[in-house]
């Protein structure tokens, strides 16, 4: 179960990443953030973001046009 949820539906690049960064910066290490996005570009971008920043992408789920990312804060 996620500790925080960020709904970035309807937002386009780079807003989902910027909002994810902001949300994570307010959280403690080990906490789980769930990000909901409708931007198809965010599938690759969230992965790249996590690779680069060391946060752990636990899962990516696609559900009726929405992408749900589960990220563990590093």
């Amino acid at each position: 179960m996620a500790d925080e949820t960020l709904d970035a539906s309807g937002l386009n690049c780079p807003l989902p990443i910027l909002k994810t960064k902001k949300a994570l910066s307010k959280m403690d290490t080990g906490k789980i953030l769930e990000v909901i996005s409708t931007d198809a570009g965010s599938i690759k971008d969230v992965e790249a973001f996590c690779n680069q920043t060391g946060n752990k992408l636990i899962s990516t789920v696609e559900e009726s046009g929405k992408y749900i990312f589960t990220i563990e804060k590093a």
């Binding site: 910027l18 790249a48 973001f49």
Partner: peptide, 11 residues
């Protein structure tokens, strides 16, 4: 502004 803000997000 897009590349700069994303750059900060990427540390």
């Amino acid at each position: 502004f897009i590349i700069a803000s994303t750059g900060v997000a990427m540390d």
